[in-house]
């Protein structure tokens, strides 16, 4: 067995089928998209080569694209700022000795196993200005002045969506951190306890440094995930009202499949690809940590 796995041909025969599929449906379309981004093309007529004009237009003239960039970054940063600390705190709390541990784990992880479309619909009802639970609650407790149109108001739509996204994904990140926290050897904690460390110091000096590698992985996952975020926005607002909740991925869809500006849509997706790569690289550099040996 060992020797068989060392044989290069054997390795190749195992890897090849998957690799071919991967190249056909991921790698080639990526290059195809980069190629199309240099054309003015409505999928139907002839392709006109315009070089980098699509990109120039994107950054200099297209206010909606700039808006969608801002929203994407807002989404990414708020995900990082809100979800990372909360997920770590939940993980630390759940790793301790508490009652109903499994129950809490399941509850926090639950939103992650519901389909995004269902979540989108669910929260669309919650935010509904007429019969949604939020506005009804505010009215019931005499805070009618705080009721909003939520998803239909330019000012509240992004925060409203961000709340849903955090709710959906926090359990997932919590599970990642929980695994890391539970990997920390017991003796380290015990030694610290004997030294009289309180729980805040324990978190800061023991737990956090030892799960730093996981924070690095998770931040990259979270950042790239929120950069190409699409489904909830498509279901809840379709980028509206008046593009106020447009993100790069939804704008790409809008341009390609609603406006039939396929070349332009390709340019948007190339920018998205570049952003994902650059940001993933930067974050990985930031969180580079030495290997842990216990």
């Amino acid at each position: 067995m060992e020797s068989m796995l060392k044989n290069k041909k054997t390795i190749l025969s195992f890897v090849l089928p998957g690799l071919i599929v991967y190249i056909l449906i991921v790698i080639i379309p990526i290059f195809n998209t980069i190629y199309h981004s240099a054309f003015k093309w409505n999928i139907l007529g002839s392709k006109n080569f315009i070089g980098l004009e699509n990109f120039v237009n994107l950054f200099t003239r297209d206010k909606i694209f700039i808006k969608s960039m801002k929203n994407t970054f807002l989404l990414m940063i708020s995900s990082l700022v809100v979800q990372t600390p909360l997920a770590i705190l939940l993980a630390v709390a759940l790793s301790g000795k508490i009652k109903f541990k499994r129950y809490y784990k399941t509850v926090f992880f639950m939103p992650n196993i519901i389909a995004s479309v269902a979540i989108g619909l669910l929260w669309t009802f919650i935010y509904n200005p007429e019969f949604g639970i939020i506005n009804r609650f505010l009215e019931a407790v005499g805070l009618k002045s705080l009721t909003r149109l939520w998803l239909a108001d330019v000012k509240t739509v992004m925060p409203s969506i961000i709340v849903v996204i955090c709710w959906q994904f926090i359990g997932y990140h919590m599970i990642l951190y929980l695994a890391a926290v539970e990997n920390i050897p017991k003796d380290l904690r015990e030694a610290a306890l004997i030294d009289g460390v309180n729980s805040v110091k324990m978190l800061w000096y023991i737990t956090l440094p030892l799960i730093k590698y996981m924070i690095g992985i998770d931040v990259v996952l979270m950042a790239t995930g929120s950069l190409r975020f699409f489904d909830l926005i498509y279901v809840m607002t379709n980028g509206g009202p008046n593009h106020a909740s447009e993100v790069i991925a939804s704008y790409m869809y809008y341009k390609s499949f609603r406006d039939y500006q396929y070349g332009y849509g390709s340019a948007v997706s190339v920018v998205l690809l570049a952003l994902c790569l650059v940001i993933a690289y930067i974050l990985q550099r930031l969180f580079r940590s030495e290997k842990l040996e216990y």
Binding site: K63, V154, G240, N242, H243, R258
Partner: peptide, 27 residues
């Protein structure tokens, strides 16, 4: 057609939500 047509519709929606008409139509 789709591109400009959708933007017109969006502009009107924005106006009813409080955007200044002149600004919306300039955009």
């Amino acid at each position: 057609g789709a591109a400009v047509g959708n933007e017109y519709n969006n502009a009107i929606q924005a106006i009813t939500a409080g955007t200044d008409p002149e600004e919306a139509f300039t955009t």
